[in-house]
């Protein structure tokens, strides 16, 4: 008896977990979408997976407030079904515009068709969907990972003399890849390879996945350092792997940023700190602060203006001096 009660109790706890995922959309009521001229936006976030994502959420919430847009926000906790549920509830609530960051690339056609049938425009942020029917969404706002990789590669080409730390004329690059199969990992690698092909002295001598994590980056870098070949440049496809690699480089008795030049992508706070400290040489920004742009696009769409189907996030790059300058205002 006790056994059954406890099983039931734990089942209830677990389902309560599931419900909290989409709990926030029930509080808004069903008739807030209105014809009084104010805009209601439903936003379905991926989840709170990292500092980057939290900054992304904050940016969207704040800029909605500034733009006078009524925002309904849900957190899908990394699950596609939660996100689909949230989008359906937005359709029922007749919001004016739906925006979301798809958890995965595929499986969106059905729910997006429902939105289309209800006449609600959809804007994708940060991640794309893989659908042949491009009429399902108005615009995709986000970073171009290929361009990010190119910017990183371009830095090596531009600083080739400086990057050749042992002065032998050949620049040996090791690369820490992101999670295998993830779009940022594939595209950043592609862009980087593309950019460095301009200079035949630059060569990627080893490349391995570090799963976008510090621990992964450290362990793989340890192995690269043991190989015995000289390493001139490290390209880490995100800050975290770069930060892990820095620890491995220091443990090997080398100075990160001097003995091995380091380039990373993202520009999160810890990465910027390391850049400012001279341990990283160059960071390509992958900005989560796309809220203002998103609100702008939403307004244009609702005013009936044409918007570009692909809009890039406004992003920059940082060298060490710029990092020191930007660090105090860094939000994430």
């Amino acid at each position: 008896m006790l056994k059954k009660t406890l099983i039931a109790a734990s089942a209830i706890t677990l389902s309560a977990f599931a419900f909290t995922a989409c709990g926030s959309d029930s509080e808004g009521g069903s008739s807030t979408a209105s014809d009084d001229g104010s805009i209601t936006m439903g936003f379905a976030q991926v989840g709170a997976e990292s500092g980057w994502r939290t900054a992304n959420t904050k940016s969207i919430q704040e800029s909605a407030k500034d733009a006078g847009i009524d925002l309904k926000f849900t957190d899908a906790q990394g699950k596609q079904e939660n996100q689909i549920q949230a989008i359906r509830s937005y359709i029922q609530q007749k919001v004016d515009v739906i925006a979301f960051s798809p958890v995965v690339e595929t499986g969106w056609d059905a729910v997006l068709n429902e939105a289309k049938a209800a006449g609600i425009p959809v804007i994708l942020t940060d991640r794309a969907v893989d659908s042949k029917d491009t009429s399902l969404y108005k615009s995709f706002l986000g970073s171009d990972f290929v361009v990010e990789g190119q910017k990183a590669g371009q830095w090596v080409v531009d600083n080739a003399a400086d990057a050749d730390t042992d002065g032998d004329g050949a620049i040996n690059v090791v690369q820490l890849e992101g999670t295998t199969g993830a779009a940022p990992a594939i595209d950043r690698g592609e862009g980087f390879a593309d950019a460095i092909s301009a200079d035949p002295s630059i060569k990627v001598v080893a490349s391995q996945t570090g799963d976008f994590t510090r621990d992964g980056g450290k362990q793989v870098m340890e192995s690269f350092l043991q190989s015995g070949d000289h390493i001139d440049v490290l390209f880490a496809q995100n800050d975290d792997m770069g930060l892990g690699a820095i620890e491995a480089i220091e443990a090997a008795g080398l100075t990160p940023g001097k003995d091995i030049k380091i380039i990373t992508v993202d520009a999160v706070h810890d990465g910027m700190q390391a850049l400012s400290d001279g341990k990283i040489n160059f960071i390509v920004e992958c900005s989560p602060l796309l809220g203002p742009q998103l609100m702008d696009i939403a307004k244009k769409v609702l005013d009936g203006e044409d918007v570009e189907p692909r809009i890039l996030t406004e992003e920059t790059t940082f060298d060490q001096a710029q990092a020191t300058e930007a660090l105090p205002d860094r939000q994430y």
Binding site: S50, R214, E247
Partner: peptide, 14 residues
Amino acid sequence: VIAANTNSVNANSL
């Protein structure tokens, strides 16, 4: 030990 290895904790991946 894992957290100390990178002086950080990433609750998602640790």
